[in-house]
């Protein structure tokens, strides 16, 4: 190792972090631990209650999906009825015009 490298080593010597670094890290660790404990509380509920929550969530999702599909089906039927009516009216008008045109 030559003088230049030794100088480089001196220039790159370790530097202290800003004040309160340790406290800031510990505060972040504590915050994360709090967050995890909230999740942990949920997981550590009695099994029946935990599964009941999951089942309720599933039922709600299934109900929402079914309701959405039913609405779409109803909308489709209504659109079809309107179309049939329109065709029927058009057909009647065409027949009427056809009758009125002198042959």
């Amino acid at each position: 190792m030559d003088d230049f490298e030794r100088q480089l080593m001196q220039a790159m010597s370790r530097t202290d972090p800003p004040g309160a670094f340790e406290a800031k890290v510990l505060a972040r660790v504590a915050r994360e631990a709090d967050g995890r404990s909230g999740l942990w509380r949920w997981f550590s509920r009695p099994v029946t209650l935990r599964w009941a929550s999951v089942a309720l969530a599933l039922v709600m999702v299934a109900t929402g999906v079914t309701w959405q599909r039913e609405r779409e089906r109803e909308r489709g039927e209504q659109a079809l009825a309107k179309l049939e009516l329109a065709l029927k009216i058009t057909s009647e008008k065409l027949q009427k015009i056809d009758r009125e045109i002198p042959k």
């Binding site: 530097t15 972090p17 670094f21 890290v25 510990l26």
Partner: peptide, 11 residues
């Protein structure tokens, strides 16, 4: 570990 290595990591 935090006390021993904070200068290393920060630097």
């Amino acid at each position: 570990a935090l006390r021993a290595h904070q200068a290393m990591v920060f630097s």
